[in-house]
Design a protein around this nucleic acid. Structure first.
Lengths: 109, 109
DNA sequence: ACACAAGTCTTGTAATGCAAGGTACTGTTT
DNA sequence: AAACAGTACCTTGCATTACAAGACTTGTGT
């Protein structure tokens, strides 16, 4: 039991939330998502992101279209669906509630 | 992919953090921990808590002693160790950082 | 004896992040 | 043309862990 594993465990589930938020802002492809998350100090690797995006897509929360790149292989540009937007709203509530609960517990003396 | 599963995933790893906080406040046994967490709307069941407490104990982050009850079977009263206190401090930082990152991502337009 | 409550614990399942490596396309260098 | 490097997407196997369901133990009341 070490801090880095705990960090991983805490981040679990939050990734889905953050990625939905990023996609909700506009069309974007995987590598740029990783960059955004890394900039915000939320580290994520490809082996985590790609399966997650597939799960979101299979759940009809996001959709994608292929776009050819000027240099390199084509990219999958993701965008959020209506269902995804609704789901994101419930996630916002879940997150707020969770922060609130944790605040309650960790600030008590 | 549904909201209740997401809730579970988001809570993952946070439980360890919250339970360490509760134990850090003073000696306490499992059923009372569940009550405290439930009061704070952080639902946890026995099948989750007992293995978690064993993990914490095996990692030397907490210790326990048996205390006989006036009515019913004896109880395991847990308390935090010095190592546990140090670990809890790093978890506090991890949590703050995570909240900060999430805030950054979800509030961006 | 029996039922019940309180407390602790175990087994099996499902979800998912990560490490490591693979595939495919494009452009550059030799 | 062949080899290399960069970009982008994907897969496999492993470890962790929350949960559902149920078991075991101790003490109390009928």
């Amino acid at each position: 039991m070490n801090a880095s594993n705990t960090q991983i465990q805490m981040r679990k589930g939050l990734l889905e939330f953050c990625i939905l938020h990023i996609i909700a802002r506009g069309e974007i492809y995987a590598s740029d998502m990783i960059e955004e998350l890394t900039d915000a100090k939320m580290i994520i690797v490809e082996g985590t992101l790609y399966p997650l995006l597939n799960r979101l897509k299979n759940a009809s929360l996001v959709s994608y279209k292929w776009v050819e790149s000027e240099s390199g292989p084509p990219r999958k540009y993701y965008s959020i669906t209506e269902e995804g937007s609704r789901f994101l709203e419930t996630l916002n509530e879940t997150w707020d509630s969770l922060v609130n609960s944790t605040q309650l517990i960790t600030s008590k003396k």
